[in-house]
């Protein structure tokens, strides 16, 4: 019990962010018309590509001699970039088509 309270207390700012972000996410998405669900899902997909920031941090914190870790980190950054760039590009392509109408 003590441990849990300490953990929550030490990370209270993070927990605020989590709770508020949950509400923001629900609010923002709640009003989306069905026609935009696919682009939205694709856009959201690109946004969780922010995990690439973590991959970059891992690489920056890895000693330059640790080849195995650097190689793993390299793969992680490639995957993260694919998620980000591919996600945003494909969303843009979809939305471009919506624009052309009329």
């Amino acid at each position: 019990m003590n441990q849990i309270i300490n953990f929550l207390g030490e990370n209270i700012q993070m927990i605020y962010i989590i709770i508020l972000s949950v509400f923001v996410g629900v609010e923002v998405i709640g009003k989306v018309p069905a026609v935009l669900h696919t682009p939205l899902m694709s856009g959201a997909n690109a946004i969780h590509g922010v995990v690439i920031v973590g991959a970059i941090i891992v690489m920056l914190n890895t000693p330059a001699e640790n080849i195995l870790s650097l190689a793993l980190g390299f793969v992680a950054v490639v995957f993260g970039t694919l998620n980000v760039v591919g996600g945003f590009a494909v969303t843009d392509r979809m939305l471009e088509m919506f624009k052309k109408k009329k």
Binding site: I17, V22, V24, G25, G30, L40, A44, N45, G54
Partner: peptide, 15 residues
């Protein structure tokens, strides 16, 4: 990372 991840987590769940 936290905001981005949680936003998508909750938005994805609603979707």
């Amino acid at each position: 990372m936290l905001t981005g991840g949680i936003l998508v987590g909750s938005a994805g769940t609603i979707l």
